[in-house]
């Protein structure tokens, strides 16, 4: 049973970690709009963004 002392805090930490990840994702607005990003995914980057990337590298 002593393994429980180790396992349960680990499980709780893991849970807390995911909860934190969810909080972060929500705060950064990832759940604000669920339809448009899927449309944006396959689009080519606009020229402006590409330029910015090239300049940065």
């Amino acid at each position: 049973m002593s393994v429980l002392i180790l396992v349960i805090p680990m499980a709780l930490l893991l849970g807390a970690g995911f909860l934190y990840a969810f909080f972060w994702a929500t705060s950064s607005g990832q759940f604000d709009d669920l339809t448009t990003p899927s449309m944006r995914m396959l689009d080519q980057d606009s020229k402006k963004l590409q330029n910015n990337k090239e300049n940065n590298t």
Binding site: D33, L34, T35, T36, M39, R40, L42, D43, S46, K47, K48
Partner: peptide, 27 residues
């Protein structure tokens, strides 16, 4: 459709003083 989103979000390409164009399709 999604092409409308693509086209409108290209506005910064056409007009350099526009920094960002973002579409919310649902709304």
């Amino acid at each position: 459709c999604s092409s409308c989103v693509h086209l409108i979000e290209k506005i910064p390409d056409f007009y350099s003083e526009c920094i960002l164009a973002r579409v919310n399709f649902g709304q």
